[in-house]
Write a protein that binds this DNA or RNA. Structure first.
Length: 421
RNA sequence: GUGAGCGUAGCUCAGUUGGUUAGAGCACCAGGUUGUGGCCCUGGGGGUCGUGGGUUCAAUUCCCAUCGCUCACCCCA
């Protein structure tokens, strides 16, 4: 048997309604904030991600699905969306058409990691990007939108964490301070953190090892070395999300792994999804667009993992799906009447009723069981003596009541429907 | 890439201290009198016991390998 590739999943009919439910909320919230949807190809030239995300990151270093196509072009299935959005923004000069572009997306992403709870190799994200303004109110908007979507899905076990990384200059000064602070304690660090010491020292804060965290307790914090501009924006951001009624905590340890972040970073985590608890994360990237060859343009955005969110929803039983029951099931009493059944089903479907009937020539009892299983509100019986004399029976499946109606006046049945519902 | 656990019907799981036709519940199908559901009853279909090799008179049960799944580390959404 050929099976789906490791880390990929089929979404079967029983589950698709949850996705649609979520997608509807996503569309709804983004459009209320006046964000416009953008779609980009699933693959791009590899160099886009290498340059945008950072050569040194794990994503670029060991997780990308990269391959040469038949004309020897080095392509990569997109591991995240921001680089693609920025590429499209530059390529189509969106910045010249209007000074601020507010965009959102829902799209599959690909990273070759070891699958675990809330982590797949093909996974799906929705997210927003605002390109063209340094206003911290846009940062606030990102947090607001993502929080709002999660709330609309009925999630409660949420923690919003925010931090600011400042501008590169102040961050460099801080990195030096941190380095000298840890220098003589380096031998006490875990193996992973020793590596981080050289590659990306800020990530040591991410360590789950207790000893590492103990050592860091006395460490200087980034906030102490912030430039005035970043500090001011951070203050405005906190005020804004406070007045939006969003509870948050400042987490100086929140250091995004992608190279392009500046100033604000944030994350919303759930206590209901296992160890991959970040449902969404994002931040400001004021230097990325320039880095990718565009005019210097500030930007801010976030991405959210749909599988993780759905997992949290499942575990919190956070919402119930609207029912997708049938309005009408047509029961065929005589096998010869298939064409009549077909025509009447067409009639009801044309006027937007959800209708189904039996295609397997099964017994009336089996047809009734089917109607019941599909939660049909009404059953129409066609056939037998009453059909010959121009009538058929309509049964209300909830009350059990049954009425005889003229078969050449199906519109009268429609009236009955409307009155009954 | 590292580590741990698990692989028996569509699903959730029993079971075999190695021994003839491998079980249950749910789901599915058909019946329970002539053309009518939800409950109930009866019957039925469906499993190379993940795959390959080894030990044995005999393996689904023991051993080895392999593949897959799950969770965690790492990293991230």
């Amino acid at each position: 048997m050929i099976k789906a590739v490791t880390g990929t999943k089929d979404t079967l009919p029983g589950e698709i309604n949850k996705w649609k439910y979520l997608e509807n909320i996503v569309h709804d919230v983004f459009s209320h904030f006046n964000y416009k949807e953008i779609r980009t190809p699933v693959f791009e030239e590899t160099i886009l991600f290498a340059r945008g995300i950072g050569e040194e990151t794990d994503i670029v270093g060991k997780e990308m699905y990269s391959f040469l196509d038949r004309s020897e072009t080095n392509l990569t299935l997109k591991p995240e969306m921001t680089a693609s959005v920025v590429r499209a923004y530059i390529e189509h000069s969106l910045g010249n058409q209007q000074p601020l572009n507010k965009l959102f997306y829902i799209s599959p992403m690909f990273r070759q990691e070891r699958p675990q709870a809330g982590r797949l190799r093909q996974f799906h994200q929705f997210g927003g990007e605002a390109l063209g303004s340094t206003s911290p109110y846009l940062d606030a908007e990102m947090i607001q939108m993502s929080f709002h979507i999660l709330k609309q899905l009925g999630l409660n076990d949420l923690t919003v964490k925010i931090n600011t990384l400042g501008v590169p200059a102040s961050r460099e000064i801080y990195k030096q301070k941190l380095k000298s602070f840890l220098q003589d304690k380096k031998h006490l660090l875990s193996a992973d953190s020793k590596k981080r010491f050289d590659t990306n020292i800020l990530r040591i804060f991410d360590s789950k090892v207790d000893e590492d965290q103990q050592l860091l307790k006395e460490a200087p914090t980034l906030l102490e070395y912030l430039d005035d501009d970043s500090r001011n924006d951070f203050d405005l951001l906190m005020k804004a999300i406070s007045s939006a009624g969003i509870p948050f905590e400042i987490d100086p340890k929140l250091v995004r792994g992608l190279d392009y972040y500046t100033k604000t970073t944030f994350e919303i985590i759930s206590g209901k999804v296992g160890s991959q608890s970040a449902l969404c994360g994002g931040g400001r990237y004021d230097l990325l667009i320039e880095e990718l060859g565009g005019k210097p343009t500030p930007g801010v955005g976030f991405a959210a993992g749909i599988e993780r969110i759905l997992l949290a929803c499942e575990n919190e039983k956070s919402f119930t799906l609207p029912d997708d029951s049938l309005d009408l099931y047509i029961v065929k009493l005589d096998k010869e009447l298939s064409n009549v059944i077909f025509d009447s089903a067409s009639f009801f479907r044309r006027v937007n009723y959800t209708v189904d009937y039996d295609y397997l020539d099964r017994s009336v009892k089996a047809q009734m069981r089917e109607a019941n299983k599909m939660n049909a509100r009404f059953v129409l019986f066609i056939g037998g003596d009453e059909f010959k004399s121009g009538f058929c029976n309509l049964k209300n499946m909830i009350s059990g009541e049954q009425y005889q109606v003229p078969v050449n006046q199906l519109d009268q049945i429609l009236n009955y429907f409307k009155n009954a519902s």
